[in-house]
Design a protein around this nucleic acid. Sequence first.
DNA 1: TATTGTTATACTCTATAACTATA
DNA 2: TATAGTTATAGAGTATAACAATA
Lengths: 144, 144
Amino acid sequence: MMTQTEIPEATRLAMALVGLSHHVLHLFNDVGRGHDLTAQQTELICAVIVRGRTRMADLSKLLHLEKSNLSGLVDRAEQRGLIVRTRDPKDRRATWVELTAEGERLAMRTHGVVTERLNRLVDQLPAEDQRRLTAVVEQITTGE
Amino acid sequence: MMTQTEIPEATRLAMALVGLSHHVLHLFNDVGRGHDLTAQQTELICAVIVRGRTRMADLSKLLHLEKSNLSGLVDRAEQRGLIVRTRDPKDRRATWVELTAEGERLAMRTHGVVTERLNRLVDQLPAEDQRRLTAVVEQITTGE
DNA sequence: TATTGTTATACTCTATAACTATA
DNA sequence: TATAGTTATAGAGTATAACAATA
Protein backbone atom coordinates (compact mmCIF):
# COMPACT_ATOMS: atom_id res chain seq x y z
CA MET A 1 0.00 0.00 0.00
CA MET A 2 1.06 3.58 -0.63
CA THR A 3 1.24 6.04 2.22
CA GLN A 4 -0.97 9.11 1.96
CA THR A 5 1.28 10.76 -0.63
CA GLU A 6 3.01 9.62 -3.79
CA ILE A 7 5.51 12.47 -3.84
CA PRO A 8 9.07 11.06 -3.72
CA GLU A 9 11.30 11.77 -0.71
CA ALA A 10 13.76 13.80 -2.79
CA THR A 11 10.99 16.01 -4.10
CA ARG A 12 9.57 16.47 -0.62
CA LEU A 13 12.89 17.77 0.67
CA ALA A 14 13.23 20.05 -2.33
CA MET A 15 9.71 21.43 -1.93
CA ALA A 16 10.24 21.99 1.78
CA LEU A 17 13.48 23.88 1.19
CA VAL A 18 11.92 26.01 -1.52
CA GLY A 19 8.95 26.83 0.71
CA LEU A 20 11.24 27.74 3.57
CA SER A 21 13.37 29.93 1.34
CA HIS A 22 10.36 31.86 0.09
CA HIS A 23 9.24 32.33 3.63
CA VAL A 24 12.64 33.58 4.78
CA LEU A 25 13.23 36.03 1.96
CA HIS A 26 9.62 37.21 2.10
CA LEU A 27 10.32 38.34 5.66
CA PHE A 28 12.60 41.09 4.36
CA ASN A 29 9.74 42.20 2.19
CA ASP A 30 7.27 42.25 5.04
CA VAL A 31 9.54 43.93 7.52
CA GLY A 32 10.89 46.45 5.02
CA ARG A 33 7.46 47.52 3.82
CA GLY A 34 6.67 49.03 7.20
CA HIS A 35 9.58 51.41 6.63
CA ASP A 36 9.03 51.95 2.92
CA LEU A 37 12.00 49.76 2.03
CA THR A 38 12.15 47.09 -0.65
CA ALA A 39 13.27 43.60 0.34
CA GLN A 40 16.63 44.18 -1.33
CA GLN A 41 17.24 47.49 0.40
CA THR A 42 16.34 45.86 3.70
CA GLU A 43 18.75 43.03 3.08
CA LEU A 44 21.45 45.48 2.10
CA ILE A 45 21.31 47.51 5.30
CA CYS A 46 20.91 44.39 7.45
CA ALA A 47 24.00 42.90 5.85
CA VAL A 48 25.99 46.08 6.50
CA ILE A 49 24.90 46.46 10.10
CA VAL A 50 25.92 42.89 10.92
CA ARG A 51 29.32 43.20 9.28
CA GLY A 52 30.09 46.84 9.74
CA ARG A 53 31.36 48.74 6.68
CA THR A 54 31.72 46.34 3.80
CA ARG A 55 33.26 46.42 0.36
CA MET A 56 31.11 46.29 -2.75
CA ALA A 57 32.75 43.09 -3.90
CA ASP A 58 31.91 41.35 -0.63
CA LEU A 59 28.31 42.58 -0.66
CA SER A 60 28.06 41.31 -4.19
CA LYS A 61 28.92 37.77 -3.12
CA LEU A 62 26.88 37.97 0.04
CA LEU A 63 23.67 39.08 -1.64
CA HIS A 64 24.18 37.03 -4.80
CA LEU A 65 24.10 40.17 -6.94
CA GLU A 66 26.07 41.06 -10.06
CA LYS A 67 28.31 44.00 -9.34
CA SER A 68 26.41 46.15 -11.81
CA ASN A 69 23.13 45.41 -10.07
CA LEU A 70 24.65 46.11 -6.70
CA SER A 71 25.79 49.49 -8.01
CA GLY A 72 22.18 50.34 -8.78
CA LEU A 73 20.89 49.10 -5.45
CA VAL A 74 23.53 51.06 -3.56
CA ASP A 75 22.80 54.13 -5.72
CA ARG A 76 19.16 54.09 -4.65
CA ALA A 77 20.03 53.48 -1.01
CA GLU A 78 22.50 56.33 -1.13
CA GLN A 79 19.94 58.66 -2.69
CA ARG A 80 17.60 57.79 0.18
CA GLY A 81 20.30 58.71 2.65
CA LEU A 82 20.68 55.23 4.10
CA ILE A 83 24.30 54.56 3.21
CA VAL A 84 27.42 56.38 2.02
CA ARG A 85 30.27 55.22 -0.17
CA THR A 86 33.87 55.88 0.81
CA ARG A 87 37.07 55.24 -1.10
CA ASP A 88 39.78 52.98 0.28
CA PRO A 89 43.06 54.93 0.18
CA LYS A 90 45.12 51.73 0.25
CA ASP A 91 43.38 50.09 -2.71
CA ARG A 92 41.99 52.88 -4.77
CA ARG A 93 39.84 50.52 -6.81
CA ALA A 94 37.80 49.48 -3.77
CA THR A 95 34.68 51.17 -2.37
CA TRP A 96 33.40 50.75 1.18
CA VAL A 97 29.70 50.90 1.96
CA GLU A 98 28.67 52.14 5.40
CA LEU A 99 25.45 53.18 7.06
CA THR A 100 24.42 56.75 7.77
CA ALA A 101 22.78 57.53 11.12
CA GLU A 102 19.38 57.13 9.48
CA GLY A 103 20.47 53.92 7.79
CA GLU A 104 21.74 52.55 11.07
CA ARG A 105 18.49 53.39 12.81
CA LEU A 106 16.45 51.56 10.17
CA ALA A 107 18.93 48.69 10.02
CA MET A 108 18.79 48.09 13.76
CA ARG A 109 15.02 48.01 13.73
CA THR A 110 14.57 45.84 10.68
CA HIS A 111 17.40 43.48 11.53
CA GLY A 112 16.00 43.03 15.01
CA VAL A 113 12.56 42.17 13.70
CA VAL A 114 13.86 39.83 10.98
CA THR A 115 16.08 37.98 13.44
CA GLU A 116 13.31 37.71 15.99
CA ARG A 117 10.85 36.37 13.44
CA LEU A 118 13.35 33.90 12.00
CA ASN A 119 14.03 32.57 15.47
CA ARG A 120 10.33 32.42 16.22
CA LEU A 121 10.07 30.14 13.19
CA VAL A 122 11.96 27.43 15.04
CA ASP A 123 10.68 28.36 18.47
CA GLN A 124 8.54 25.28 18.82
CA LEU A 125 11.39 22.89 18.18
CA PRO A 126 13.28 21.27 21.04
CA ALA A 127 16.47 23.19 21.88
CA GLU A 128 18.55 20.29 20.65
CA ASP A 129 16.88 20.40 17.24
CA GLN A 130 17.40 24.15 17.05
CA ARG A 131 21.14 23.85 17.64
CA ARG A 132 21.29 20.99 15.19
CA LEU A 133 19.42 22.99 12.55
CA THR A 134 21.77 25.95 12.90
CA ALA A 135 24.80 23.70 12.64
CA VAL A 136 23.43 21.83 9.64
CA VAL A 137 22.43 24.95 7.77
CA GLU A 138 25.73 26.66 8.48
CA GLN A 139 27.56 23.61 7.24
CA ILE A 140 25.50 23.57 4.06
CA THR A 141 26.04 27.22 3.24
CA THR A 142 29.70 27.45 4.14
CA GLY A 143 30.50 24.37 2.13
CA GLU A 144 29.33 25.87 -1.17
CA MET B 1 37.50 34.42 26.91
CA MET B 2 35.31 34.81 23.89
CA THR B 3 35.09 32.08 21.32
CA GLN B 4 36.23 32.97 17.83
CA THR B 5 33.08 34.94 17.10
CA GLU B 6 31.02 37.51 18.95
CA ILE B 7 27.93 37.07 16.80
CA PRO B 8 24.93 36.09 18.97
CA GLU B 9 23.30 32.69 18.54
CA ALA B 10 20.02 34.19 17.29
CA THR B 11 21.84 36.16 14.60
CA ARG B 12 23.84 33.10 13.58
CA LEU B 13 20.68 31.12 12.94
CA ALA B 14 19.15 34.03 11.05
CA MET B 15 22.25 34.49 8.89
CA ALA B 16 22.43 30.79 8.18
CA LEU B 17 18.78 30.66 7.11
CA VAL B 18 19.18 33.71 4.90
CA GLY B 19 22.28 32.26 3.29
CA LEU B 20 20.52 28.98 2.67
CA SER B 21 17.51 30.72 1.18
CA HIS B 22 19.63 32.69 -1.25
CA HIS B 23 21.36 29.52 -2.23
CA VAL B 24 18.11 27.65 -2.80
CA LEU B 25 16.35 30.32 -4.83
CA HIS B 26 19.52 31.06 -6.76
CA LEU B 27 19.39 27.49 -8.00
CA PHE B 28 16.31 28.27 -10.09
CA ASN B 29 18.26 31.09 -11.61
CA ASP B 30 21.24 28.89 -12.41
CA VAL B 31 19.24 26.01 -13.74
CA GLY B 32 16.84 28.17 -15.72
CA ARG B 33 19.57 30.17 -17.41
CA GLY B 34 20.74 27.11 -19.32
CA HIS B 35 17.30 27.02 -20.94
CA ASP B 36 16.88 30.78 -21.30
CA LEU B 37 14.35 30.89 -18.47
CA THR B 38 14.22 33.40 -15.64
CA ALA B 39 14.19 32.09 -12.07
CA GLN B 40 10.48 32.93 -11.77
CA GLN B 41 9.55 31.18 -15.00
CA THR B 42 11.52 28.15 -13.86
CA GLU B 43 9.75 28.13 -10.51
CA LEU B 44 6.41 28.49 -12.25
CA ILE B 45 6.80 25.48 -14.50
CA CYS B 46 8.37 23.40 -11.72
CA ALA B 47 5.43 24.19 -9.47
CA VAL B 48 2.97 23.16 -12.17
CA ILE B 49 4.71 19.93 -13.05
CA VAL B 50 4.75 18.81 -9.43
CA ARG B 51 1.08 19.61 -8.84
CA GLY B 52 -0.38 19.09 -12.25
CA ARG B 53 -2.69 21.79 -13.59
CA THR B 54 -3.15 24.44 -10.97
CA ARG B 55 -5.40 27.44 -10.44
CA MET B 56 -4.01 30.95 -10.57
CA ALA B 57 -5.09 31.61 -6.98
CA ASP B 58 -3.15 28.59 -5.74
CA LEU B 59 -0.04 29.49 -7.71
CA SER B 60 -0.29 32.95 -6.28
CA LYS B 61 -0.04 31.65 -2.72
CA LEU B 62 2.56 29.04 -3.60
CA LEU B 63 4.96 31.45 -5.26
CA HIS B 64 4.24 34.35 -2.92
CA LEU B 65 3.11 36.51 -5.84
CA GLU B 66 0.34 39.11 -6.03
CA LYS B 67 -2.30 37.95 -8.44
CA SER B 68 -1.53 40.84 -10.79
CA ASN B 69 2.14 39.90 -10.90
CA LEU B 70 1.27 36.28 -11.49
CA SER B 71 -0.89 37.36 -14.44
CA GLY B 72 2.15 38.99 -16.01
CA LEU B 73 4.41 36.02 -15.33
CA VAL B 74 1.88 33.61 -16.81
CA ASP B 75 1.40 35.95 -19.78
CA ARG B 76 5.09 35.78 -20.60
CA ALA B 77 5.23 32.03 -20.10
CA GLU B 78 2.19 31.62 -22.33
CA GLN B 79 3.75 33.79 -25.04
CA ARG B 80 6.80 31.55 -24.92
CA GLY B 81 4.57 28.54 -25.40
CA LEU B 82 5.34 26.95 -22.04
CA ILE B 83 1.86 26.94 -20.55
CA VAL B 84 -1.78 27.40 -21.52
CA ARG B 85 -4.71 28.84 -19.62
CA THR B 86 -8.04 27.05 -19.55
CA ARG B 87 -11.34 28.11 -18.07
CA ASP B 88 -13.10 26.11 -15.37
CA PRO B 89 -16.68 25.49 -16.56
CA LYS B 90 -17.88 24.88 -13.00
CA ASP B 91 -16.54 28.13 -11.58
CA ARG B 92 -16.27 30.53 -14.46
CA ARG B 93 -14.16 32.95 -12.45
CA ALA B 94 -11.34 30.46 -12.12
CA THR B 95 -8.43 29.86 -14.52
CA TRP B 96 -6.33 26.70 -14.68
CA VAL B 97 -2.70 26.79 -15.70
CA GLU B 98 -1.24 23.74 -17.40
CA LEU B 99 1.96 22.91 -19.24
CA THR B 100 2.28 22.54 -22.99
CA ALA B 101 4.39 19.70 -24.37
CA GLU B 102 7.33 22.09 -24.60
CA GLY B 103 6.67 23.38 -21.10
CA GLU B 104 6.53 19.87 -19.76
CA ARG B 105 9.79 18.98 -21.43
CA LEU B 106 11.55 21.97 -19.88
CA ALA B 107 9.84 21.47 -16.53
CA MET B 108 10.95 17.86 -16.27
CA ARG B 109 14.53 18.77 -17.02
CA THR B 110 14.77 21.80 -14.77
CA HIS B 111 12.83 20.24 -11.92
CA GLY B 112 15.04 17.18 -12.07
CA VAL B 113 18.20 19.24 -11.87
CA VAL B 114 16.89 21.50 -9.10
CA THR B 115 15.77 18.54 -7.02
CA GLU B 116 19.02 16.73 -7.55
CA ARG B 117 21.10 19.74 -6.58
CA LEU B 118 18.98 20.47 -3.52
CA ASN B 119 19.41 16.90 -2.37
CA ARG B 120 23.10 17.04 -3.08
CA LEU B 121 23.22 19.96 -0.64
CA VAL B 122 22.47 17.59 2.22
CA ASP B 123 24.23 14.60 0.72
CA GLN B 124 27.02 14.60 3.27
CA LEU B 125 24.68 14.44 6.23
CA PRO B 126 23.86 11.12 7.89
CA ALA B 127 20.56 9.71 6.60
CA GLU B 128 18.98 10.27 9.97
CA ASP B 129 19.84 13.98 9.87
CA GLN B 130 18.46 14.25 6.35
CA ARG B 131 15.10 12.83 7.38
CA ARG B 132 15.10 15.06 10.43
CA LEU B 133 15.87 18.13 8.34
CA THR B 134 13.04 17.39 5.94
CA ALA B 135 10.62 16.89 8.80
CA VAL B 136 11.73 20.03 10.59
CA VAL B 137 11.56 22.22 7.50
CA GLU B 138 8.16 20.82 6.51
CA GLN B 139 6.88 21.50 9.97
CA ILE B 140 8.14 25.07 9.83
CA THR B 141 6.59 25.85 6.49
CA THR B 142 3.28 24.12 7.00
CA GLY B 143 2.83 25.78 10.37
CA GLU B 144 2.81 29.29 8.91
C1' DT C 1 46.46 40.92 -17.08
C1' DA C 2 43.28 40.66 -13.37
C1' DT C 3 40.36 43.12 -10.21
C1' DT C 4 37.05 46.79 -8.66
C1' DG C 5 33.44 49.30 -9.71
C1' DT C 6 30.43 52.24 -12.99
C1' DT C 7 27.46 53.12 -16.96
C1' DA C 8 24.13 51.83 -20.48
C1' DT C 9 20.39 49.09 -22.32
C1' DA C 10 16.60 46.19 -22.57
C1' DC C 11 13.84 43.38 -20.26
C1' DT C 12 11.56 41.21 -16.22
C1' DC C 13 9.64 41.65 -11.91
C1' DT C 14 7.04 44.07 -8.27
C1' DA C 15 3.61 47.07 -5.75
C1' DT C 16 -0.55 49.33 -6.06
C1' DA C 17 -4.95 50.54 -7.61
C1' DA C 18 -8.90 50.31 -10.57
C1' DC C 19 -11.51 47.31 -13.18
C1' DT C 20 -14.65 43.18 -15.09
C1' DA C 21 -16.95 39.06 -14.39
C1' DT C 22 -18.75 35.51 -11.62
C1' DA C 23 -20.29 33.50 -7.20
C1' DT D 1 -20.41 41.33 -0.86
C1' DA D 2 -16.62 38.39 -1.67
C1' DT D 3 -13.69 36.00 -4.87
C1' DA D 4 -10.90 35.20 -9.36
C1' DG D 5 -8.48 37.25 -12.50
C1' DT D 6 -6.95 41.20 -15.77
C1' DT D 7 -5.18 45.71 -17.02
C1' DA D 8 -2.44 49.84 -16.31
C1' DT D 9 1.40 52.34 -14.48
C1' DA D 10 5.53 53.53 -12.28
C1' DG D 11 9.38 52.08 -10.17
C1' DA D 12 12.76 48.50 -8.78
C1' DG D 13 15.42 44.65 -9.87
C1' DT D 14 18.18 41.79 -13.28
C1' DA D 15 21.31 40.10 -17.11
C1' DT D 16 24.67 41.42 -20.17
C1' DA D 17 28.21 43.96 -22.24
C1' DA D 18 31.38 47.71 -22.65
C1' DC D 19 34.09 50.80 -20.12
C1' DA D 20 37.63 53.39 -16.86
C1' DA D 21 40.76 53.14 -13.16
C1' DT D 22 43.86 50.76 -10.34
C1' DA D 23 46.68 46.76 -8.94
